[in-house]
Design a protein around this nucleic acid. Structure first.
Length: 887
RNA sequence: GCCGGAGUGGCGGAAUUGGCAGACGCAUCAGACUCAAAAUCUGACGGGGUUUAUCCUUGUGAGGGUUCGAUUCCCUCCUCCGGCACCA
């Protein structure tokens, strides 16, 4: 019988659906396992084989966990709110409200066809009122705890998306979505005070099983920096300038001060006669985009204000400058400059002929500095602190500053508060009412959700205001406190709000009374295994961790970290057609890395001369026109073959260059499993365990004696022992490797096993050789089916059924291995002479040095090599090698 | 510039408390089956060499080191990928 994967796959997908096989219920008596993939935004282009690089291995993982007896929660939902959905809706002239469920249905269909075992009864759509009611509820919780505030400050404004962006959404000065240069724009906006949690977000990283790279990215983003704040009095004025420095020990070397152009003191300090010049400079600096300003290669510019500050340690008057290399949004927006020990200050001092003083020395002596020495060392030219090592000096000066009341040790973070406001339609409305009398009033809980109104025109207004501002029925309301006329907040929340708690909702989808019941949360959470793309290393993961901690502080959760283990799947790259940029395109090509290559647009592709198309590897995406769909692959090779290929082709975390050729191997493998099992079926005995001879199965207990149907004698010879050993070794290996996400080598191990099975009992004309041991065949057939089931689930179920298994194979226990069976009887020991392998001998496991030595000396080759030479040393490693050193 | 990660056959990759490099698969070549093809099965498959076989030699980005022994550890360098970047 041929392997009819189409029939088999359709059959089991139907049965799983009809029987609700993957419905998950809270069962206190069972150990739970929560495996989650980052929920996707369902785009109109559908899923491609690249997406499955994540969903398929995690599905295999879940099925394995289920066979291990865990109660597995494996849910899926849609990150439906936010700009990607809104932008796509605008582009297609659709209403996102209707569009998103349609696209989600397509995604669901593809995932089902790929054999993924989601509990679809827990599906989430974050844009439905039943969901975002609780997003708003959590907003109010943050507000109540003083963690949500409204502030007017220059924000990152994307002129193309016409909305504000959080810091994390700005990449190299450009919008993360559309790549437009980001501008600064002062606007009243809502922020979450994530900076209040900076220390905890940093410290708790230690508890997590995440990749070191991932943790490092979070650490960098939080950017904790220890130092001191110092107040410099301004000569002849009342004001003082507060600076932040990580090197308070270099205070004696501070020969000037630099303020950021936006610093509030600038106008106070500037001398009258320098005013116009300074204003010119500031105007020029503000006209520059962040992209220009962040360009390190630029030479430094600056201007003297005419004012002087007093260095508190030595009373010297030092000039106050303005320069755009100082940023207003870090530290205090002002720095003390120590040109001797800071590269930037050094460069600046050289350019403007400011004094350079050495205050740190490698050895305690003084010498001419040819460049800034930013390293630690011994203090010089530092008054009574001379001779102190940097670390001690820092401590001492910190205390001294505090005593004098002009400074204090201080920690600054790079992390900025989370900008949540979006001046867009497609998001959860911020549940705040602005009352002329009462100010900002939270919407009372009983009035949640604040429903996003259904409108015709939801495009950005262009004025910077949300489209909601143009809907009087939405805006005009009454103040919950005083009952007077009031206006609703018209900003909506950015999409990251929804994804900061969805993993909690999965535990108790559909709960109308609370975001999730405590009992469900206590049972299912935290997430044991989380997977997603590395691009969420800072934003999503940081925000979700923050909200979890806030909910914990409120006493609503019993844990502080939502994702215990995190793995990042690699992406799939595909050959992509592109072209060389035209001359005038060079400058606005955007991304530096592809400056000499531009992806062909769909319409261009038709007409572009084929010999001028430049093919390159690029991430698979519809917009690049390089997509391979799983449906197409499943049609030709079957979903099971596709699944095996996606896992076998490369390690989970690696990027893959997609090629279709490799799938033949996986398809061949799956077909070979099928063919062997069909041949083995007539011999299969369900009760094979009882027929194992006692000495062959220490684990089988004492009832075992060869059954009548089994012919005794040489059928339990070395071949049987060898194939069973391989079987049990494979069981151990596959289990361990699924656990550690090494799906590629787990598949390879099963392939190896299959090769040995074929060598032991090759199927010919759809039957196994006569005289083959049916007990061994039965054990092989059953175990192979169980091993394969997580990888190729449709085939797994079909074979399990053919073997007489009941229910689903995923309620069957994962096979156990017999440790005694695994041990090899003989091992290869290599014989080295002077460090080179010269021969190897096959000898009983655990042979001692003397035995091995005697055996080795018998080898003609070794004898010959050692003839007439003197043995100096012999190194013996049990079961591995014998190394003879001679001269 | 700083911080991570990586570099192994024609290709994807495997092997690490230092002990048989290239598992498994793709592609390729040869053979079997076939009228033929596909499918399937068998074999070969890093480079060089020779007395052609249980052979010798070389080989894991480059160079050096430690060691009886290095893909694995150390030093220097090169390349690629990712992140951060006048962060004071």
């Amino acid at each position: 019988m041929n392997y009819n994967f189409k029939e088999i796959e359709a059959k089991w997908q139907r049965i799983w659906q009809e029987n609700h096989t993957f419905r998950t219920l809270l069962e206190e008596s069972k150990k739970k396992y929560y495996c989650l993939e980052m929920f996707p935004y369902p785009s109109g282009s559908g899923l491609h084989v690249g997406h499955l690089k994540n969903y398929v291995p995690t599905d295999t993982f879940c099925r394995f966990k289920s066979m291990q007896g865990y109660n597995v929660l494996h849910p899926m939902g849609w990150d439906a709110f936010g700009q990607p959905a809104e932008n796509e809706a605008i582009r297609r002239g659709r209403n996102p409200r209707e569009m998103v469920p349609e696209y989600a249905a397509t995604y669901r269909e593809t995932l089902i066809k790929a054999g993924c075992s989601y509990d679809w009864e827990r599906e989430i759509n974050s844009s439905l009122p039943g969901y975002y009611k609780w997003t708003q509820w959590i907003f109010l919780l943050l507000h109540r705890r003083g963690l949500a505030y409204r502030a007017t400050s220059p924000i990152n404004w994307c002129p193309s998306c016409k909305t504000g962006l959080a810091n994390e959404e700005v990449k190299e000065g450009r919008c993360w979505r559309c790549d437009s240069p980001v501008e600064k724009k002062p606007m009243p906006q809502w922020f979450f005070r994530i900076t209040a949690y900076a220390d905890r977000l940093l410290a708790d990283l230690e508890k997590l099983d995440w990749s070191e790279g991932m943790k490092e990215m979070q650490r960098d983003w939080i950017g904790r920096s220890e130092g001191a704040e110092v107040d410099f009095a301004v000569a002849g004025k009342k004001q003082s300038i507060r600076v932040f420095t990580t090197r308070p020990d270099t205070l004696f070397g501070a020969t000037f001060i630099v303020l950021a152009p936006e610093h509030p003191l600038v106008s106070h300090l500037t001398a009258a006669k320098r005013r116009s010049e300074v204003q010119d400079y500031i105007r020029k600096a503000q006209g520059e985009s962040d992209i220009d300003r962040l360009n390190v290669a630029r030479t430094k510019t600056g201007i003297f204000t005419g004012a002087y500050a007093v260095n508190p340690v030595n009373g010297e008057k030092i000039p106050v400058w303005i320069a755009d290399y100082v940023m207003m949004n870090y530290g205090t927006g002002a720095i003390m400059c120590v040109p001797g020990h800071d590269n930037r200050d050094f460069e600046f001092a050289r350019k403007f002929s400011l004094p350079i003083v050495q205050v740190v020395s490698r050895d305690g002596s003084t010498y001419d500095l040819e460049s800034a020495e930013a390293t630690e060392g011994i203090a010089v030219n530092s008054g009574k602190w001379n001779g102190l090592p940097t670390a001690e000096f820092k401590q001492a000066i910190g205390r001294w500053l505090e005593e004098k009341g002009i400074g204090r040790p201080m920690i600054h973070y790079r992390l900025r508060d989370w900008l949540i406001s979006r001046q867009r339609y497609w998001g959860a409305p911020i549940p705040i009412i602005h009352c002329p009398k009462c100010g900002e009033v939270p919407v009372p809980e009983a009035q949640l959700p604040v429903v996003l109104p259904d409108v015709e025109n939801y495009q950005p207004s262009g004025t910077g205001e949300s489209p909601l501002a143009t809907i009087p029925a939405f805006v005009e309301t009454v103040c919950p406190t005083c009952g007077g006329a009031a206006r609703r907040e018209t900003d909506t929340m950015g999409g990251y709000a929804c994804s900061s708690w969805y993993f909690l909702r999965f535990a108790d989808v559909g709960n109308d009374n609370f975001f999730a019941s405590r009992s469900a949360l206590d049972y299912w959470l935290p997430v044991d295994q989380y997977t997603g793309g590395i691009e969420h290393a800072r934003s999503h993961l940081l925000y979700a961790r923050f909200w979890t901690k806030v909910l914990f502080d409120e006493g609503l959760l019993g844990f502080e970290e939502p994702f215990l283990r995190l793995r990042n799947q690699g992406s799939l790259l595909a050959m992509t057609p592109g072209r060389r940029p035209r001359p005038q395109e060079e400058n606005n090509a955007g991304d530096e890395k592809i400056i000499d290559w531009i992806v062909l647009k769909h319409d261009e592709r038709e007409q572009y001369p084929a010999d001028q198309i430049v093919w390159r590897w690029a991430r698979m995406s519809k917009s690049k026109g390089n997509v391979v769909t799983p449906d197409d692959m499943a049609e030709r090779f079957g979903a099971d073959s596709l699944r095996v290929y996606e896992m076998f082709v490369a390690p989970f975390e690696d990027d893959v260059h997609w090629s279709e050729e490799g799938i033949h191997g996986s398809h061949r493998f799956v077909t070979r499993v099928w063919r062997w099992l069909q041949a083995a079926l007539p011999l299969f005995r369900r009760e094979w365990r009882d027929a194992l001879p006692v000495e062959m199965s220490p684990a089988a207990g004492n009832s075992a004696a060869p059954a009548d149907s089994i012919k005794p004698g040489d059928q339990w010879g070395p071949a049987e022992r060898a194939v069973r050993r391989k079987l049990h070794q494979t069981v151990r290996k596959v289990g361990a490797q699924i656990e550690t996400f090494q799906f590629n080598t787990a598949v390879a191990a099963i392939m190896e096993l299959l090769n040995e099975i074929y060598a032991y009992a090759p199927p010919e004309r759809e039957a196994l050789p006569e005289n083959i041991n049916p007990v061994v065949v039965s054990e092989l057939a059953e175990t192979l089916t169980l091993l394969l089931a997580p990888f190729a689930p449709h085939l797994g179920e079909e074979l399990w059924q053919q073997l007489g298994g009941t229910a689903t194979v995923y309620r069957a226990p994962w096979p156990a291995y017999d440790p005694e069976l695994i041990a090899e009887e003989n091992v290869n020991i290599m014989i080295q002479v002077n460090g080179k392998i010269k021969d190897k001998i096959r000898i009983a496991l655990d042979s001692d040095e003397e035995t091995v030595k005697q055996e080795a000396m018998k080898c003609g080759k070794i004898k010959q090599l050692l003839a007439g030479r003197q043995i100096i040393k012999i190194i013996f490693i049990k079961n591995k090698m014998l190394s003879i050193v001679c001269k």
